[in-house]
Amino acid sequence: MTDARTAELRGFKEVQRLAYACAEAVAARLRPGVTEREAARMQREWLRARGVRDWFHLPFAWFGDRTAFAGFRIPLQFFPTGRRLEAGMPFILDLAPVHRGFTADVGYSGCLGPNRLHGKLLADLEAHRELILREVRERRSLREIYEDVDRLMVRQGYANRHRAYPFGVIAHKIDRVKERRWSPHVFGFGTQSLKGLAGDALHGHRDGWSPLWSPYRFSDHPPKPGLWAVEPHLGFRGTGAKFEEILVVTDSRDPEQSAFWLDDDLPHVRRWAEAV
């Protein structure tokens, strides 16, 4: 790996760690009665105080059965609401800051107090992290991998809830973003990042690939080198859980180097290690 590449990955790793640190700090401050809007604002303020000026998307917070996107029909329903947290309720914080030109997009699942069902969902996400990495290394088509994740979820007894995201994506490419003094956003998404994604989509369309990893035909291609924010999302009768983190895909011939998770020291990975 070249030095430039190592430095670049370090940049992404740092912002991803920053994002997870934010999620953990905010999660620790959640109390019964806090609303989704307040939780979203806590994330924004925490990151602003640490130099974040631009976003891939503004922070989201989902509480209770909204973690499983129960009854979601239109994208506006993703935005934080006045729903209040209660004891035993699951929650998800989803945030995508841009820091020094590097983007991260992370998802943090937690629960206010013990909830055995939620614990089970979190534990069952581990198999998905392994499956995705294995099949990306095998250079299977993204659409096929998507379907295999789907099948595993069904076998586990769960519903695929990433299907509710725009285009039903389980992942999307992320990239470096130019730092601007003024970084506006539309519908919660940073315009700089959207521009990057749209550019990729345009190129990809010509070359037969897409920056959106979906169940549709346009994802019927082998993994494209680059950085992918992968977010498998399980739902089970009003309880949802996900993780989201960066998967690095390269054009190396060595399988180990052809794909790897950018960072293995993340809250959900640590939790699985502790459970063993």
Binding site: K120, R155, Q156
Partner: peptide, 13 residues
Amino acid sequence: EGAARTAELARLI
């Protein structure tokens, strides 16, 4: 195996 899984989740809900 699938039936065991159903029983396990049934107890959780």
